[in-house]
Amino acid sequence: MSLDFNDETFRGDFTFKNSAKAIKRFPFPFPEDSYMYSVNMEPHVPGPVGSVFEHMFDVDEHYVSEMRDRAQVLADDPLRCQSLPHMELAGWDLLELIMESKARDYPHWFSLTKDGNQWHWVNRPLQIEQKFTFLDASTLPYGPMEYITRQTQGDFTLQDQRDDDLWIEAGMVTTQADWSLDFDIGMSFKQWHAPVPLAHQMGIFDRALKFLLKLQHGAPVRRFNWTMTVDPLLDTSPENYPKWGPGKTTMTPQTIGHRQHLRVELQTLHRLPRSNAIAFPIRCYLIRFEELVTVPKWARRLHRVVRDIPDELATYKGFLRNKPLMLEYLAPFDDGQPTSPGFAPE
């Protein structure tokens, strides 16, 4: 593998790790010392050079290994990628958005040339070269959404918009925080969020839906979500819960720094032009506790967030069982000093 990309695993021997550069650019999701749900959407505009916001779709050192893990998940369970028949056009919209963005933002890795609908795509890191006819799925080895999301980090869902609602009707979901595309596909916005505690009563989904129905082409937005994962597993799916669930019970004070990961989702939302659908990329970033505590502000703040989170949320996010262990590990890094507002290290 080239110098740009790590050769690592997200299963078995779990050799995943972040370089010093990756830790520095990690999207720490807490702007203050406590956490509660909020809609917290902001324009997805380019951020500082080197940050995960620099480009529309961030490609980082984990790219090639993450794509290898995705291919393995799909080989084991093809139902992780599904598209209802009427969503193919939205798939083409997504393919166009990603190919154009990557070719523009990373010209040394990706290129796209067009002659009318005859397109030529080159993905150097994955050693893929493909000539195809735009809008003709028979000229690609997979449907358009599957083709491009096998080459793009993060999960993706596509939402059809009709009847003043959003319907999750296509997706590539292999790096998920414990939800099943196969079960949820076809649901309305509130249906697929139904299992989330507290937020419905707080009106979070009413406000978010109202906002998203008006989302405009050319004005994508972003927000964070987060959870906790034991071992650097990308695929924490309900399908495989019996395989990864037992791992949560074997953590010790000695292993927690190495095994416990904060899992951050950078979620972006894009109105797609031809289909009027909304693309929802959910990009997962993992950082182990021992990597995270190298940034003093993050260590202090994470301790306070975990300490004060309601049990109902800790249960939903699946870490109530290990909360005491986490606090024991994090407490020594919290000297009680105030933290500065915002995400950045001091």
Binding site: S180, F183, D184, I185, G186, M187, Q191, A194, P195, P238, Y241, P242, G245, P246, K248, T249, R321
Partner: peptide, 22 residues
């Protein structure tokens, strides 16, 4: 048995209860 329900599958969702503690 969860209350989460899929209209497409016409079914409730069942999740392994002893995954963490077989």
């Amino acid at each position: 048995v969860r209350d989460h329900f899929s209209r497409r599958l016409a079914a409730f969702q069942g999740v392994n209860i002893d995954a963490e503690d077989p």
